[in-house]
Design a protein around this nucleic acid. Structure first.
Length: 511
RNA sequence: GGCCUCGUCGCCAAGUGGUAAGGCAACGGUUUGCAAAACCGUUAUUCCCCGGUUCGAAUCCGGGCGAGGCCUCCA
């Protein structure tokens, strides 16, 4: 099956048709940096990071841009509240955003343009729009005239005439039509001077939508292959971006509009405006970044995801079986799962559709499963792909049992499991999962002293076990010795440490 | 009022015309000194309801009922 991508513009899946050339250009709307990031802000980045990983695996080069909106009403207001400047606040919140991305293993973003660094380009585009008759200045502001754009509303199926019916649109006698939106906002007396720029229409700052149009074309060209963002940005933000850009350039703005579903808190979406946000920094106190990323990828990207502690706990539980396998793998092979080389895909030339990637639905072939690749080719169906990954894990565990990896593996068995585990490693790489071993750190598990003490305890308990197992059946010491070994295990469990007695020796872990 | 989604096992979730993936939970069994982990097996004749199209529908169409998003800032 060749790669199919759902297009918001046509409301259906379409064969992925990029522009000529090997590079895929992708633009995703980023945050307004006035508050620390909440989990909802990470949905898009995690999804599009996975999209990039998959496309890269197929052999495309992907250039991905996320913008940083560092000037806007909310920033001005918030900076005043905190008695700081807009640039200082923006810088701090941008750093927070970057930190969150890094923690969730979102590594593929190539450029983070800032709105304030592209004011000149915005003035140019606004000027061009005025010259072409799509925009008009009005008392220090500049507005886009929606009545001049014949296909305005095509992205969201909006009729400009009906926009008048909606009474929530900002009323302004400067606008010619109710649906007109600001390209440039004249400065108000109360606004700080670091948020004011000179322009042909007087001092002010850009409207919200224009920055994306300008930065996208500046960095990626007039036509994007993929434009992404949250579902809540469809209207008016993306509709207006599209109208501006296509009016200014006369070219198609984006081949594919992809919109991710929103994170919900109970039944309502999580958003600053609703006041039900969960900060990422807080969240990561309770759950690993991997758990969070896994949750975000476990459902289809266009569906809403409900955030809940229970859900995260459940996901964390399901990850355990992967970790158990990684440990088994390391015991058996002496090598870390995290260092495995993925199965390369470079035998598949650029643009070659995934249906030509053959072989491999099971563990017998050396390339990552056709089933997995088919799921990803079907509009990046990560939920189904994760299902395949679980099945693959099961097969590997089963193989591990057959090969007796935990007691006396033959060199053949070790070689076999090493070879087949590469498939799992490859799937994980495409989804951006299992990038680093889970920390034992919670209880000091990474500490050398703790590790030493644990080994001491395990050795002493091992002596007791050996003695108990060697004792005759009717020896009264036998149950007493076992009682001691069980007590040690029980007391450690109370501390959150699990002991596991295996043929080759006892292992321990936190959790 | 307009536009747009969604409703699949106790919970989460794939599947969008060919006879219900996967995870969590639960219950049997193997293994283990006992555990833990792992393995094997069981768990939706049925996909919110009612009609229709079809040889065939969870999937398409019509009508209900229910939940949500956008139309104002929002990832």
């Amino acid at each position: 099956m060749a790669l199919q991508v759902y297009s918001t513009l046509t409301r259906k899946k379409e064969p992925f048709h990029k522009q000529p050339g090997e590079t895929v250009t992708m633009y995703v709307c980023g945050p307004t940096v006035y508050k620390p990031s909440h989990i909802g802000h990470m949905v898009g980045p995690v999804i599009f990071d996975t999209v990039k990983r998959y496309l890269t695996y197929l052999g495309y080069k992907v250039t991905w841009v996320i913008n940083i909106t560092d000037v806007d009403d909310k920033l001005i207001k918030r900076a005043a509240e905190l008695n700081t400047t807009v640039p200082a606040l923006a810088e701090r919140m941008t750093a927070d955003y970057f930190d969150c991305l890094k923690k969730l293993n979102v590594t593929g973003i190539d450029h983070f343009p800032k709105a304030t660094e592209h004011i000149g380009g915005m003035i140019e585009m606004i000027t061009r729009l005025i010259e072409k008759g799509y925009a008009y200045p009005a008392a220090g502001d500049v507005y886009f005239d929606v009545s001049k754009d014949p296909d305005y509303g095509k992205l969201c199926n909006r009729d400009p005439e009906q926009l008048e019916a909606g009474s929530r649109i900002e009323v302004s006698d400067r606008k010619r039509n109710p649906g007109d939106f600001a390209l440039w906002k004249g400065a108000k007396p109360s606004e700080p001077k670091e948020a004011i720029w000179e322009s042909p229409w007087g001092p002010g700052r850009p409207g919200w939508h224009i920055e994306c149009s300008v930065m996208a074309s500046k960095l990626l060209g007039d036509t994007l292959d993929i434009h992404g963002g949250g579902l809540d940005l469809q209207f008016p933000h993306h509709e207006n971006e599209l109208a501006q850009s296509e009016s200014a350039t006369g070219k198609e703005f984006a081949r594919f509009w992809m919109h991710n579903g929103l994170l919900k808190m109970g039944t309502a979406k999580m958003a600053g405006s609703v006041g039900n946000v969960v900060n990422i920094a807080d969240l990561l106190q309770r759950h690993s970044p991997e758990t969070v990323r896994f949750l975000l990828l476990s459902t289809h990207y266009r569906s809403p995801i409900e955030y809940s502690e229970d859900r995260l706990t459940e996901v964390a539980k399901s990850l355990q079986s992967f970790y158990r396998f990684f440990e088994l793998y390391e015991r058996a092979t002496g090598e870390s799962f995290y260092n495995i080389q993925q199965v390369e895909c470079d035998q598949f030339p650029i643009g070659r559709p995934p249906d030509q990637i053959t072989g491999m639905p099971d563990l017998e072939s050396g390339s990552p499963g056709g089933e997995f690749m088919s799921c990803m080719a079907d509009d990046f169906n990560t939920g189904a792909a994760i299902g395949i990954m679980f099945s693959t894990l099961s097969k590997l565990h089963y193989l591990g049992s057959l090969l007796k990896l935990d007691s006396n593996p033959s060199p053949y068995a070790v070689a076999d499991i090493k070879n087949k585990t590469r498939i799992l490693r490859t799937m994980a790489n495409i989804l951006g999962l299992f990038w680093a071993p889970p920390a034992k750190a919670a209880l000091g598990g990474d500490d050398k002293l703790v590790a030493g003490l644990m080994q001491l305890l395990i050795d002493l308990r091992g002596n007791l076990r050996t003695e108990a197992k060697g004792a005759a059946k009717d020896n009264p010491l036998k149950p007493a010795l076992f009682a001691q070994t069980d007590l040690i295990r029980k007391r450690l469990a109370e501390l959150g440490v699990t002991l596991e007695d295996r043929p080759a020796g006892t292992t321990w872990r936190v959790g």
